[in-house]
Nucleic acid binder design. Sequence first.
DNA 1: TTGTACGCGTTATCAT
DNA 2: ATGATAACGCGTACAA
Lengths: 342, 342
Amino acid sequence: MTDPGDAMRAKRRGSVTLKDVAREAGVGIMTVSRAINSPDAVSEKLRTRVESAVVALGYVPNRWAGTLASARSRLVTVIVPSLSSRVFGEIVSAADAVLTPHGYQIMVSNTAFSLDDEETVCRKVLGWRPEGIIISGIDHNPATREMLMQSGIPVVEALELGSDPIDINIGISHADAGATAAEHLLSRGRRRIAFIGAEMDLDFRAQRRRAGFCEALARHGVTPALEIHHSGRVGFATGARAMEELLASGEAVDAVFCVNDELAVGAVGAAIRNGRAVPDDLAIIGFSDLDVSAEIVPSLTTIRLPRVEMGRLAAEAVLAGRRETGEKRIDVGYELVVRESS
Amino acid sequence: MTDPGDAMRAKRRGSVTLKDVAREAGVGIMTVSRAINSPDAVSEKLRTRVESAVVALGYVPNRWAGTLASARSRLVTVIVPSLSSRVFGEIVSAADAVLTPHGYQIMVSNTAFSLDDEETVCRKVLGWRPEGIIISGIDHNPATREMLMQSGIPVVEALELGSDPIDINIGISHADAGATAAEHLLSRGRRRIAFIGAEMDLDFRAQRRRAGFCEALARHGVTPALEIHHSGRVGFATGARAMEELLASGEAVDAVFCVNDELAVGAVGAAIRNGRAVPDDLAIIGFSDLDVSAEIVPSLTTIRLPRVEMGRLAAEAVLAGRRETGEKRIDVGYELVVRESS
DNA sequence: TTGTACGCGTTATCAT
DNA sequence: ATGATAACGCGTACAA
């Protein structure tokens, strides 16, 4: 009475298939498929019959089968250094807002700021046959670059502009941003300028901000009065600890460039706590412009990285699709946001 | 000479398949499959032959085909209200740290704090046939609940404890947390206590914190001196605006419960800016304990939500797998963290 | 408008 | 240890 196929399927998975819906509705499986994917191509009557069968059985189309058959995954992967950071969260969120309405699903993977992990992650991710890849930064292992180039899908390197993009490149010059920070502090009449960073060996963009900062100082005949490369993980607390270290050093310092806003916000707190007047005794500037940076007291001078715009543009570039299309390099620019801390 | 299948495949996708590798290595496809998935079951010699063919061709296994054939997706989906918030980012990150080593991939979807979007997202997500679902909160549309119950996979409702979990439930009582906030302020001798919230209509957990807060006050014969339900989106800036509104109201207030830390941090900033002494004039308490909360001046008293632990436990519950196993409800507890702002 | 047959790339099963 | 073959559930192409 029951055919063996049914039994086996039931064993493998409780899942309702197209065939089940077709039988329930008394139609062929293609009618069901069409009623779902292109409703207009099906007669009113059958469509409603199918729809009620779908509801009755609680049918949910199997994307694995669908993708395999159609060779369209409707998947875009985003590779970021960290899942918990708000900076990357905002980029992913902005990309998602663009892609979801087009029926795409985003899959996020993280590299923990490691090039080797990035390579591993890339290889795994390509197994999902995404229709586009958004990846952070321009520094990759040769094997990673190779894989990405061979993949044949749109690849967007985001966050930083490089000279030799794999495909599409959207970002800013971090060296310039560092230089802008230096010039701002100099323009405020500061000359005893320090640098605070953390995890500098892993974060290439931070390295370039620092380099640009140092070079700009040098052009004005200034050398960093002190550099704190803290061993802690990037975060507010580490910024505070780094500032404490700086103050304890006894070095005469009248300004600090913190390589990102997490460190800078922590540093402002620690400076205030230790009786320094910010900016009078000590000017502080960060990088990225977190939401919180504008609300602390004193509010933080920083350099705004247009994260939402980058996420949006990256997603649109993926949608625009094939490699030959449109601009290969988009400089989204950054903006010096002068607030109370400098 | 070339069979038509090859041409068609090439047209569909530049992708290298198992068959290509098999031909290159001069073995059957099953040998390749085994060499990759269970290397020990293949002779040393063939394994190396296969491995070099894989590298030569740049073969990456197609997960869609693999999953379809094996009925194992190795996919866990996490459904959160927002992708950009650090709170949810940390939960996802913690879950990912547990699942990745086990070969699972996480797929994140967001509901924008809408129950209807949640239903849509759930339906879509089930099409991926994940092996587990981690979903935020305990409030769902009836249809969503039904879907999730029928799915047959482990479902973890995280963040809040409810009385009637779908499957596994990990979180805390938000009403209790709100009550704890109220009791803390009362214990500090405050009686003119205000409340600040935003997007309260969407965030059920926030609603319950407020309810618990009000009830606890009532038990002590106290009524909220003022409630600001700001119309802006939850964020630091909105907290600042809400505090400005509170101060402008002229209402005599000596303490404020902000329904989350974003609002609270913004509120502290605005209070200071407007010349209020925190906590002397005005005590402030938040909820969740963001990283930044400890570093602002004055540091924020808050209630710590163990996000990392929740993410980890949720992932482990999914791994533990089938529904009958283990505890159904885990109260991870919260912790009052008293700092300078109260 | 609706249905049939085949193929998508892999894994499971069973022979060898 | 290795290989041939049948699913897996759906979409494409074409026939009816």
